[in-house]
Each structure stands twice: as structure tokens, then as C-alpha cells.
Amino acid sequence: MYDLTGFQRDLMYVIAGQEEPHGLAIKEELEDYYEKEIHHGRLYPNLDTLVEKGLVEKGQRDKRTNFYTLTRRGRREIEARREWEGRYVDLE
């Protein structure tokens, strides 16, 4: 996960937190978080990169709608990242 951008990590967290979200649901969630519009030209190429890296799987709900899920490797990467963050951030 060290080679991902912050935006790509955020995409993975959103996908992990929803059940098979489609691109527009991911986009809306990130727009709420970033408080600005996320353009398709930023969203979909980054999702494709995560698919190419084997962290996310892309499925097809119908001819126009894809959905995304984390792969087993993607889940392991998030867990490893959270462990790493936990060594440095103690919010208790």
C-alpha cells in the first residue's frame, strides 16, 4: 500500500465500508469527505489502477454499472496499514 496515493487509499477504505458499491456511490462518499466534486477522470482511472494492482475486483451489475470489492490482498493491505498507523497514532 506504500505505493498508493492518498486518494487511492481513500478509495479502498470507501469500498471496504460498503457492500459492492458502484462508481457513483464511491464518488458521492468521497465528495462528502473531501467537500468538493470528484471528476470521473480522476475516479475511474484510480479505480482501474487498484484493479490492475490486484487490490480491488471490478464486477458488472448490468451493462452500464460496475461494482467494486476488495480482494483478499486488498483487505490484508488495509489491515497492515491500520496496524502501521496504530504504532504512531494513539487516540486514547
Rank of each mutant, 00 (worst) to 15 (best):
M1R: 12
M1P: 12
M1Y: 12
Y2L: 08
Y2H: 09
D3S: 09
L4E: 06
L4N: 06
T5K: 13
G6L: 15
R9N: 03
L11V: 05
M12W: 03
M12E: 09
Y13W: 11
I15K: 10
A16Q: 03
G17V: 07
Q18C: 05
E19H: 06
P21T: 03
H22A: 06
G23I: 06
G23P: 06
L24S: 13
A25V: 13
I26H: 07
K27C: 11
K27S: 12
E28S: 13
E28Y: 09
E29S: 14
E29L: 07
E31L: 10
D32H: 14
Y33V: 12
Y34I: 07
E35N: 09
E35M: 03
K36S: 14
E37H: 10
H39Y: 14
G41N: 15
R42K: 13
R42N: 14
L43M: 15
Y44C: 07
Y44D: 14
P45E: 13
N46T: 14
L55A: 04
L55I: 07
L55T: 04
V56E: 13
K58S: 08
R61P: 00
D62F: 00
K63S: 08
R64L: 01
R64Q: 08
T65E: 13
T65M: 08
T65C: 06
Y68P: 01
T71C: 04
R72L: 09
R73L: 10
R73S: 06
R73T: 11
R75A: 01
I78A: 01
A80S: 08
A80H: 04
R81E: 12
R81G: 02
R81H: 11
E83W: 05
E83V: 02
E83R: 14
W84K: 15
E85S: 07
E85P: 00
E85G: 02
G86N: 12
R87A: 08
R87E: 15
R87W: 09
Y88S: 06
Y88P: 00
D90F: 00
L91G: 01
L91Q: 08
